[in-house]
Simulated scan of single mutants.
Amino acid sequence: MADHPTYPPPGEPIGARPDLPVCPRHPDRATGLRCVRCDRPACPECLREASVGYQCVDCVNQGRASVRRPRTFVGAQFSQRLVVTPVLIAVNVLLFAITAAQAGSVATNQRADLFADLVMYTPAVAADGQWWRLVTSGFLHFGPLHLALNMIALYVLGRDLEPVFGRARFSALYGVSLLGGGVAVYLFGGLGTVVAGASGAVYGLMGAMLVAVLRLKLNPGPALGVIGLNVVLSFTLPGISLLGHIGGLVVGALLTAGLVYAPAPRRATWQAGAVVAAVAVLVVLALVRTGQLV
């Protein structure tokens, strides 16, 4: 590595060469050095080593700003920093803590008033118009084990999907999958069933993972294995909402197909249209179901 440029020579005080230009950032410093990019004078403190010579800090910053960040096959700017995933986990944990505090019990937090107001309960949606339950129920959990399992799955899937899909697309995918799970329960579930949990959205992320793997022409075996195992558990374990899981899985996979196979020209417009269309279809299905129940 080349040594950092030094000027003036050792022993000669700064400003002792009035015939030399001064550094724009430090007018009290005369310098014989220049930026190889803009050719402006610059003192050693204001120069940074480049591939050829030295550049001033202004040119370095300008160059960094003009560099285009890489985009993924979905059209999102790739970033390893997770934002949406930890926020979603925090919201789920916060609501669990609130319901546990209201109920005075961690194991039976479903006794809380807030839980009763937000959980998925078909008669409350159909007769009382409490549509928010289709979504809010996806942020509630029955006990700490239910919460822990879903949050671990959310983190594992979000860690892989959020950097690739970007924050906006990942948020849309999670939200629409969650809504899909709630609508599936509303359409086909029993009238007295009480359903809660982020499983519908998590299964939507599983479906997204499978579609993304197929789009990239990778081996789908591991993704299919994970989905198959979870579907089998949904059938065999008691107290699990199979409809919510399947609804989230199907909706998440279909929406992801709309995102990853969108035509490159005006891709963002096509993807936004896919999200709006998915929400519109789910809303229409819920309204039709309401008309059948009321």
Score class of each variant (00 low, 15 high):
63 G>P: 08
63 G>Q: 11
63 G>V: 03
63 G>C: 04
64 R>C: 08
64 R>I: 14
64 R>T: 14
64 R>D: 12
65 A>R: 08
65 A>K: 15
65 A>I: 09
66 S>V: 09
66 S>C: 03
66 S>L: 15
67 V>L: 10
67 V>D: 07
67 V>S: 08
67 V>N: 10
68 R>T: 07
68 R>N: 00
68 R>F: 02
69 R>A: 13
69 R>T: 11
69 R>H: 06
69 R>K: 14
69 R>G: 08
69 R>E: 12
70 P>Y: 01
70 P>K: 11
70 P>V: 05
70 P>F: 02
71 R>K: 14
71 R>H: 12
71 R>T: 12
72 T>M: 07
72 T>Q: 12
72 T>E: 08
72 T>C: 10
72 T>A: 11
73 F>K: 08
73 F>I: 12
73 F>R: 11
73 F>T: 14
74 V>P: 01
74 V>F: 08
74 V>H: 04
74 V>R: 02
74 V>W: 03
75 G>I: 04
75 G>R: 05
75 G>M: 03
76 A>K: 09
76 A>D: 05
76 A>C: 10
76 A>R: 10
77 Q>A: 13
77 Q>R: 15
77 Q>M: 13
77 Q>V: 15
77 Q>I: 15
77 Q>C: 10
77 Q>L: 14
78 F>Y: 15
79 S>L: 12
79 S>F: 06
79 S>A: 15
80 Q>F: 08
80 Q>N: 12
80 Q>C: 13
80 Q>L: 15
81 R>L: 15
81 R>T: 15
81 R>V: 15
81 R>M: 13
81 R>K: 15
81 R>I: 14
82 L>D: 11
82 L>S: 07
82 L>I: 13
82 L>V: 10
83 V>Q: 13
85 T>W: 07
85 T>F: 06
86 P>E: 06
86 P>D: 04
86 P>R: 04
87 V>Q: 05
87 V>H: 02
87 V>P: 02
87 V>K: 06
88 L>F: 01
88 L>I: 14
88 L>G: 04
88 L>H: 03
89 I>Y: 05
89 I>C: 14
89 I>E: 11
89 I>A: 14
90 A>Q: 04
90 A>Y: 00
90 A>N: 02
90 A>P: 05
91 V>R: 07
91 V>A: 10
91 V>Y: 01
91 V>W: 02
92 N>A: 04
93 V>F: 05
93 V>E: 06
93 V>K: 03
93 V>C: 07
93 V>N: 04
93 V>Y: 03
94 L>G: 03
94 L>S: 07
94 L>C: 02
94 L>K: 03
94 L>Q: 00
94 L>W: 01
95 L>P: 02
95 L>E: 03
95 L>Y: 01
95 L>D: 06
95 L>I: 11
95 L>T: 05
96 F>C: 03
96 F>G: 07
97 A>T: 00
97 A>C: 06
97 A>Y: 00
97 A>W: 03
97 A>H: 00
97 A>R: 06
98 I>G: 03
98 I>M: 01
98 I>W: 01
99 T>Y: 07
99 T>R: 02
100 A>R: 01
100 A>F: 04
101 A>H: 00
101 A>R: 10
101 A>L: 07
102 Q>I: 06
102 Q>S: 06
102 Q>M: 03
102 Q>N: 05
102 Q>F: 00
103 A>P: 02
